[in-house]
Amino acid sequence: MSSTVVAGKDVLDKPLKLLFPVWVVISLLIVLFPVYLVFMVSVAPGSALFGERPALFVEDPTLRFWNDILQRGDLWGPLFKSLAVASFTTLLAIVIAAPAAYVISRLPVGLRYGVVIGLLVTRMFPEFTIGVSVATRFARLGLIDTYGGLVLAHLIGSLPFIAWILVGTFETIPRDLEEAAQIDGASKMGTLLRVVFPLAAGGIAVASLFVWLYSWNEFLYARLLTTNQNTLPLQVFQAIDRGSRQQMATVAAVLTLPILLVVYFLQRYLKPGALAGAVKG
């Protein structure tokens, strides 16, 4: 180490100071340029896209492709399916995971971590390992191309995740409060409904947004369980496969827009601190 001291001391300071703003600007571009591309291409006239140097700016934007997909109507089905599946998945995930997460959070420490790790281990399996069997069975049960089948499949990935987050939320609610409620005359169920769940509302809301996002974006199970009733991600894939660049970009933009909004509102919950506990635990 001592040999690098000479190189280290002041030599690093100056380039860092000079390069820092440049680096920040470059990284902002790296993040923003691809997103810009989707929206730009979706309004680009065909002529702008060809050749070895497609134009980086659109001079005469056109809403043709937006009009097309909005009017042709083959967007509404997938949009509705994606919305419905994401919403039902979220609802069911909370109804199933929240009560269980509460109980898990009240287990003795060793057992609690055992259960949480067990839940996370299910995530180590490739979706295909679960999906091959699930898709085969769903096919037999007639669940292919149904909303219900896809909701059930999306719950596989969401439940361990939401349960894990909510266990952390419930752990922060002191047991004193439950005891106080019991002394005040609440039953066990009353304590949960009037004290515990209202206090966990913030955590439940954040967790459900994550689940909603997951389901909205999910591609693999959707592909395994769909033959003709696409979700939005499948619609994007179809456009990639056989559409024009602008069609692809337009459907992609439709899929992305709500998410960018959600992430924008979610960002205050995406605090690094929220993860710190998970790492130490």
Binding site: V31, L32, P34, V35, N217, V236, F237, I240, A252, V263
Partner: peptide
């Protein structure tokens, strides 16, 4: 932002 961009997109 990339967190909010669907993988397929």
């Amino acid at each position: 932002i990339p967190l909010g961009v669907p993988t397929i997109v």
